[in-house]
Design a protein around this nucleic acid. Structure first.
Length: 664
DNA sequence: TCAATCCGTATC
DNA sequence: ATACGGATTGAC
């Protein structure tokens, strides 16, 4: 019941509230009166309930003020849900900036940024030495596991300077290319420790739970117990909120986590960092689809804190940061890079296959088989990376293994359906009576075989060596320094004690023929992640990649030169006019709804329209391209146009994505 | 002349 | 969304 007799608080009686409604045209603060009774509780950052358009809705109290610019009568806050200030001003500002960048609403971003409240977690003060640290270093396992590079940050000339800058509280910004064999989690923990030693906090973001476990252990090792938390959505709601509160209340200043942790509240933030920023998992799948790298870099820019973007590979976006001088690069000297890298040998798709009777499987060229055999004989484990099953259900000629391509558009053909005829993944045409253009063969087989079947085949190829798999259903964190064949899908490669003797990269065709702008970048990212787990070439570490040495991405692997490929990729995007060289927005929905949104949008003059292209389900997709300088204006125009549409109750929603990962 | 209904508009 | 107001329509 609204308290008619309530009186406004004597001091700062106005509360500016961001209400949790999904409508773009209501994406602005609304003013309410703070009743005297709630004066104490109604602090900035608290969750409140207010009457809005006759309904009770949730919201965040953004700030208290002396007066309101609103002409009409103000309603009172209905209640303060909890006095816990979960949305501090800098995160509200970050959320606003992210919403503006992605043409989304603040309410949507805050849903990603602040975990759902859990009253029990809020009431129970955490034990003094328990801030939800999930693990301590498992005896000798993590910190000592790789260490082939050994020299830590001093292997990178600019790395030492970067750490010193972080320790001095300066807002240094860097893109780091990790050496093969380097333990990135330990390097990240050292960077966090540098901030910590300076009395500052850090936010470290990784792509998945496996990487988070490693980083968590490395942090526990370098900071000691109780100094950090690990945040991920995989925790239950109570534990997640409990850890969030530990950071929010300033009990810990070092936060590691998956993408949502980019918004974590941290006192005296001094460093933000992201590992493997090219991983798709860093892109949030819920509106407005922000990318963790962008969130962190926006945060670094706004709050003037240091930023670190690290990986074995380098994304085109990271390259752009270097080329625009926003960040410096941290790389080792070329001979250090060569010394740390394993010896990489390419095997052409058609070369040598089937010729060596010892290579039991047709999928295992003899060079690869020998490399593996030698490694096993030397007592080392062997890693075999195979694409995830169903990743790209393409088909190849059963006879000569040439990829089966669509006769009409050269797109990849998909596995034959019940009707027996394969269909094109691009244009959808059914290729009846398909014959291989290379050898005339008519039989086809799946080009990608799952990890399980690969494991069976390899078991036969290497009798005596245990075969272990690591993939979707069961990820191995590490394997001991013993002979074993480890079959893993990308992202699930276990770390090997003392490194793998050989790493085999099979079925690369599936990666390279992906109909995706980022196919090369993604291929190198996955290969380097696996190859980085091998011993250095001088200590016998070998990598065999089943792909043609003439392809640039294979060259980049052979030379261990991710910077070169990234520069090349970025150059290509510049020529083609694709992100990150330009900014793009994609509009997906029913054709008339997309047209309606476009008609309502006051696009920047520089905007170019591409499309529409069919997007399945009677939907179509339109791309809008603008120079980067007009990115803000584009997002604002699309946000405003969505607002106009929602205000007049347009029924068909249009999905607006800024710089979507998937293009073409 | 009054009430039920339909739009359009604002939502503190 | 949803709630309210002003216009509109239909029946007494």
């Amino acid at each position: 019941m609204a308290k008619i007799e309530s009186r406004p608080a004597a001091a700062r009686p106005i509360a500016r509230v961001s209400v949790d409604v999904p409508l773009p045209h209501l994406d602005r603060p609304f003013d309410y009166l703070v009743p005297e009774k709630l004066h104490e509780q109604a602090r900035p950052g608290t969750r409140v309930r207010v009457r809005f358009a006759g309904q009770l809705v949730d919201g965040y109290l953004l700030e208290r003020a002396d007066e309101s610019a609103h002409g009409g009568r103000l309603a009172y806050l209905e209640r303060v849900v909890s006095a816990e200030p979960v949305l501090r001003p800098e995160i509200a500002r970050l959320g606003r900036a992210v919403a503006d960048r992605y043409a989304g609403t603040l309410a949507d971003v805050l849903r990603l940024a602040v975990p759902p409240r859990h009253a029990r977690a809020e009431a129970k003060p955490p034990a003094p030495d328990d801030h939800g640290i999930s693990s301590v270093p498992r005896d000798g396992e993590n910190s000592a596991i790789m260490g082939e590079a050994g020299a830590g940050w001093s292997a990178y000339p600019a790395g030492v300077a970067f750490l010193r800058a972080v320790g001095a509280g300066r807002a240094a910004r860097a893109v780091w290319s990790a050496l093969a064999g380097d333990d990135w989690a330990v390097r990240f923990a050292e960077a966090a420790a540098a901030a910590h030693a300076a009395g500052r906090g850090a936010v470290l973001v990784v792509a998945d739970a496996r990487d988070l476990d490693r980083l968590d252990a490395a942090l526990a090792h370098s900071l000691g117990p109780g100094q950090h938390i690990a945040l991920s959505a995989a925790l239950g709601p109570e534990e997640r909120y409990r850890r969030f509160l530990a950071a929010s209340r300033g009990q810990v200043r070092i936060v590691a986590g998956t993408r949502a942790a980019a918004f974590a509240p941290v006192d005296d933030l001094g460093l933000v960092a992201i590992w493997d920023d090219g991983d798709d998992l860093h892109a949030e799948p819920r509106a407005p689809y922000p990318h963790a790298r962008d969130v962190l870099l926006t945060r670094a820019q706004m709050d003037g804190v240091a930023a670190l973007v690290g990986g074995y590979a380098r994304s085109a976006e990271a390259q752009q940061l270097i080329e625009t001088s926003w960040a410096k690069e941290i790389v080792a000297a070329r001979d250090t890079v060569r010394g740390a890298a394993p010896a990489v040998a390419p095997v052409g798709e058609d070369v040598e296959r089937d010729r060596d009777p010892a290579a039991v499987s047709a999928r295992l060229p003899s060079i690869a088989w020998r490399a593996a055999r030698d490694a096993l004989a030397a007592g080392a484990p062997v890693l075999v990376q195979v694409p995830r099953r169903g990743y790209l259900p393409s088909v190849a000629c059963a006879q000569c293994h040439a990829p089966a391509r669509c006769p009409a558009c050269a797109g990849p053909l998909a596995l034959p359906t019940a009707t027996g005829a394969p269909a094109c993944r691009w244009c959808g045409k059914v290729a009846a009576a398909y014959a291989c253009p290379t050898c005339g063969g008519r039989r086809m087989r799946a080009a990608v075989v799952g990890a399980r079947r690969t494991a069976e085949e390899l078991g036969r190829a290497f009798p005596g060596a245990p075969v272990r798999t690591s993939g979707r259903d069961g990820v191995l964190a590490s394997v001991p320094a013993q002979p074993a064949v480890v079959v893993a899908t990308p992202g699930a490669e276990p770390v090997a004690d003392k490194g793998y003797g050989a790493v085999l990269l099979l079925d690369t065709w599936a990666l390279l023929t992906r109909a995706d702008l980022r196919a090369s970048e993604e291929a190198l990212r996955r290969w380097l992640a696996a190859a980085a787990l091998a011993r250095p070439g001088a200590r016998g570490g070998r990598v065999v990649v089943v792909a043609d040495a003439g392809i640039p991405v294979v060259q980049a692997l052979l030379r261990w030169d991710p910077a070169w490929l990234a520069a090349r990729e970025l150059g290509e995007r510049r020529e083609l006019g694709f992100p990150p060289a330009v900014r793009m927005a994609s509009l997906t929905g029913p054709p008339d709804a997309v047209a309606d949104l476009l008609a309502a949008a006051q696009l920047p003059e520089t905007a170019e329209l591409l499309g529409p292209v069919p997007a399945g389900d009677d939907q179509e997709r339109m791309l809008i391209r603008v120079p980067r300088a007009a990115g803000r204006a584009l997002a604002a125009a699309l946000h405003a146009a969505s607002g106009v549409r929602s205000a007049r109750k347009a029924r068909d929603p249009v999905r607006v994505q800024v710089d979507p990962l998937e293009l073409l």
